[in-house]
Amino acid sequence: MFIEINDLCKSYHTGEIETVALKNASLSLEKGKTGVILGPSGSGKSTLMNILGGIDRADSGSVKVDGIEITVLSDDGLAEYRRAKVGFIFQSYNLIPHLTVAENIEVIENISKNPVPLDEVLKAVGISDKKERFPRELSGGEQQRVSIARAIVKNPDLLLCDELTGALDYVSALDVLSLIQNISRRFKTTVLIITHNAAIADMADLVWKLRNGEVLDTIVNNTPADAKEIVW
């Protein structure tokens, strides 16, 4: 298994209030496959993804990625893990405001071992003509594409997408989804998509339903649909 998550628990403390974000969540996914985590707002999707991506820590449980137990890694170890394996597409795009589109992508290309050529990435996300603009000169959807480009330029083994299509119209959303699917197919990238849009589950090999921090259901989809064919 490429991803193996077992009995993952995480809760947040704000003052005296405890919020349980994850309760014994377990899931696994093979290399090159696409997984979708479905769940309503506040169900712990982002929390799960953050821990898997090595940007947050769990309270207990184990997370193995490509054979590495990441819960025991030090901060620097996690940084190395992210650098080597993980590409993030954040719910909020988190672009660097003072760098142009191209530079925002190059910043990550810079630290990657075998990056995808910049022009190819720009073309893939369809913003070649805007590469000299600054983030604030782009629409929300365009910013989203830059953030995707930034995640795929390093050609990561694991691509984590949080609320990928939330800000996009139907057509753009399909574009982006098929883009992700193509990348996964072409580079054997393992992809994890977080969404509360059940329709997107159609393109996944595996779907987990999350509620109140618990994995309620795991659905295996032997014939994932082509992203272009998804309807909602």
Binding site: I55, A79, G87, I111
Partner: peptide
């Protein structure tokens, strides 16, 4: 700090 967080999450090392 948000930009730092983004870069850190994307694989930049602390030292860098």
């Amino acid at each position: 700090s948000k930009i730092i967080g983004t870069l850190y999450a994307q694989g930049y090392r602390r030292k860098e």
